[in-house]
């Protein structure tokens, strides 16, 4: 019974290109109880951790997602003829980090935090769909307001915005850095 259910859920994960949340699974599998579904999800996760294969399930963006294992990357790239995946530029990452911690935020505010104009890097981030426009600020000029997108979470493997590097992590890193000197 629960094996069959976990197989159903596994197939739902397979067809999902976006993180699949427990909520969404429950909405689809109306004939099963919430506990049954939760138990079955645990069962699949357990299956994939105890018998590691080429595919794994990661928790990201508020749901579950199938991905390949990192160590298989060289062969996948050979198959797909991809030399390397492009990393974000330093400027883009800085802008993204500013938005992540201070959202909702306008371009002028981002630039003020960084001390440099962020127009260009913001454009890159919009194109990569890592940030989105959520509206306009009710202030002179009605500037656009930006937020990080769902893709932002998946890109960094974060489950939610709560998983952004915490104040403690940041302080620890800064201490380590000053110790190095």
């Amino acid at each position: 019974m629960s094996i069959q259910l976990s197989n159903i859920i596994e197939s739902l994960l397979f067809v999902s290109a976006e993180p699949l949340s427990t909520e969404k699974i429950k909405n689809v599998l109306t004939e099963y109880s919430e506990q049954e579904i939760e138990k079955s999800i645990d069962l699949i996760l357990e299956k994939y951790t105890s018998h590691p294969g080429g595919i794994q399930i990661i928790r990201t963006g508020g749901g579950y997602l199938f991905t390949t294992r990192s160590e298989h990357d060289p062969w996948i790239r050979r198959l797909l003829r991809v030399n390397r995946k492009n990393k974000l530029s330093s400027a883009a990452l800085e802008t993204l980090s500013t938005i992540a911690y201070h959202q909702p935020i306008t371009l002028a505010e981002i630039s003020a935090f960084r001390g440099v104009d962020a127009t260009h890097s913001l454009k890159t981030l919009l194109q990569k769909k890592l940030v989105k426009i959520v509206g306009r600020k009710k202030s002179p000029g009605k500037p656009l307001i930006y937020r990080t997108s769902e893709r932002f979470l998946t890109y960094f493997g974060l489950d939610s915005l709560k998983d952004l590097p915490s104040q403690e992590e940041i302080s620890k890193l800064l201490e380590e850095e000053s110790d190095e000197d």
Partner: peptide, 14 residues
């Protein structure tokens, strides 16, 4: 920190 996370995530193909 995010740069490190990016490096961890990039080799995982979705």
């Amino acid at each position: 920190i995010l740069r490190q996370k990016e490096a961890d995530e990039l080799p995982k193909w979705k």
